[in-house]
Amino acid sequence: MTVADAAFERRKAAILIGLRAALDETAAQSALDLWAHAYGPTRPLAIVDFVADLERLQALPPKRSGAVRLALYQALIQHDAPKARVAAPSPPAIEPAAAAVEPPPVAVPPAASDRPAMAIFRALTMSLRIGIDASGPAAQREFAIALARAGTVARVKPADLLLVWFASQSWAALADADDARLADTLHAIYVAAAETLGPVQADRLLSRAVSEAQALPESRLFPPSRLL
């Protein structure tokens, strides 16, 4: 088995774990077939498009689709990362659409990702992502453009922002980030959300994200408010 095959199988297993967490067994297997044939070989991380197809084919209500997306992201983070650090990420193209299609797969050292601050940051980011994805493809495109701009506002490199956002397992860009840099990154995401969806909706998403993050055990060690 080649390295590429191993990576594909590992990712496929992660996808199945995510699908099983949100769908019954039959629906999960059917969805996995769709991913393996239509997405796996060419666009394995195009989760938004994959779930949009799934929503149409399996007639999933929007709320359920959001849950599927979250489960897939979480499964990819937990089960698709190699155990060792891979090569440093090459900066993604600034063109957001390109970044959305196929980000470079990069892993993060477990020690870094296990930090309470990183766990809280990841939970906040994931929750915001679900909210933004639920707003539809047009909003996602607007968001990508806004995110590239927001890096300047929040003193975060746009390349890092796009990497974190579009390749959700690629936390390596923030592996050495201190709390202030995580807060800057989260703020850039908030700014982009406010520009795309409006400040009221951005506040609601952030509020929900904070509530969800507070439910994590890590929040006792690192309250989400420290990243706001």
Binding site: D203, L206, P224, S225, L228
Partner: peptide, 9 residues
Amino acid sequence: EFQRDLTHA
């Protein structure tokens, strides 16, 4: 009462 969680400490 309502805002504590959403503002910085």
